[in-house]
């Protein structure tokens, strides 16, 4: 069994309890307008162009059958890319990286637990993406491998997975970081291409089964940076029985990633990033609702 991984990131302090190593898996059923990891959306390996390393030799331009690469203007446009990866193979300067490495669960677990001496009692490994459950069998096998090495596993999920999978996840996952992109069903569908309700149903079932769940909601100016959304998020986390709920701030720093995967111009700008005051205000509204018990 093999999985496709975009990156392994060590020394992560905000991806679950303690110090963690996070593995980013490819593939996601959502297409969030603000996706911070757009290189993980596709489940297949794809070219990632680092223009700052380019020597301008034109080897990629010659090798690409689809004409995606140019030496002037927009250097890489992936609209017609067929993912043959010929460009990456011919680049002499290592400026085109293949994003998406194939791993077996055992060796991947071995790589992920290298920082075990730093994990202490609370730290461990976080599976992120993309949506890790897009590679469900691989994720379950990987979690088994981690457990056999005495390392706890956190799952960063958007909750968009078949409910039949939940039982298998519950017995293997120590912490869920459950990203609810929006609390307005219409907006959720519009901005992510995926309905909200199945996600919330999974969330409620997971909490009801006693899972350690932290609900997280991204706040984006002009999309959902409003008190009503914050209150609804607090309430749904409370009603589901989540252990905690947190707000995440949208930031525009992912625009460079879009350029690298050949989708320049899609980034949402600085104006979508909420201010400190907005975040504090929404945090208060959300926290008030979350801690309110009838």
């Amino acid at each position: 069994m093999q999985g496709i991984v975009t990156n392994i990131q060590r020394l992560c302090l905000h991806d679950g309890p303690g110090l963690r190593t996070t593995v980013f898996l490819k593939g996601c059923p959502l297409r969030c307008r603000w996706c911070h990891n757009p290189e993980t959306q596709l489940i297949r390996p794809q070219p990632l162009v680092h223009t700052e390393k380019c020597l301008g030799c034109g080897a990629c331009e010659s090798a690409c059958p689809q004409g995606c690469h140019r030496m002037e203007g927009v250097r890489f446009d992936s609209a017609r890319c067929v993912f043959c990866l010929k460009c990456a193979r011919v680049c002499p300067a290592g400026a085109i990286e293949i994003c998406g490495e194939t791993w077996e669960p055992g060796p991947l677990a071995e790589a992920l637990v290298r920082d075990k001496p730093f994990f202490g009692e609370s730290g461990g490994v976080t599976l992120s993406g993309g949506e890790p459950t897009m590679q469900a069998d691989f994720v379950l096998a990987l979690m088994d491998e981690l457990r056999s090495r005495g390392v706890n596993a956190a799952l960063e999920t958007c909750g968009a997975f078949p409910k039949e999978l939940l039982e298998d996840l519950l017995i293997r996952t120590d912490h869920f970081l459950w990203d609810v992109k929006d609390t307005d069903p219409k907006r959720h569908l519009q901005n992510t291409g995926y309905p909200l309700e199945p996600i919330l149903e999974n969330l409620r079932m997971a909490c009801a089964a006693g899972a350690d769940v932290c609900v997280r909601g991204i706040i984006i100016n002009g999309v959902n940076a409003e008190r009503e959304h914050a209150r609804r998020l607090g309430a749904l986390a409370r009603d589901a029985g989540a252990k905690d709920v947190r707000l995440l701030r949208f930031h525009p720093y992912y625009s460079a990633k879009l350029v690298r995967i050949g989708r320049p111009g899609e980034a949402m700008g600085q104006e979508y990033m909420p201010s400190d005051e907005t975040m504090a205000d929404l945090e208060q509204a959300m926290r008030h609702e979350f801690s309110f018990r009838a």
């Binding site: 110090l19 920082d115 730093f118």
Partner: peptide
């Protein structure tokens, strides 16, 4: 940014712990 707040404090301690263990 890695050193702020309680997470930062925990992170530095984790580095120390690992350094000693290794």
């Amino acid at each position: 940014s890695c050193a702020r707040g309680e997470e930062g404090l925990a992170g530095i301690q984790a580095l120390i712990r690992g350094f000693l263990a290794l």
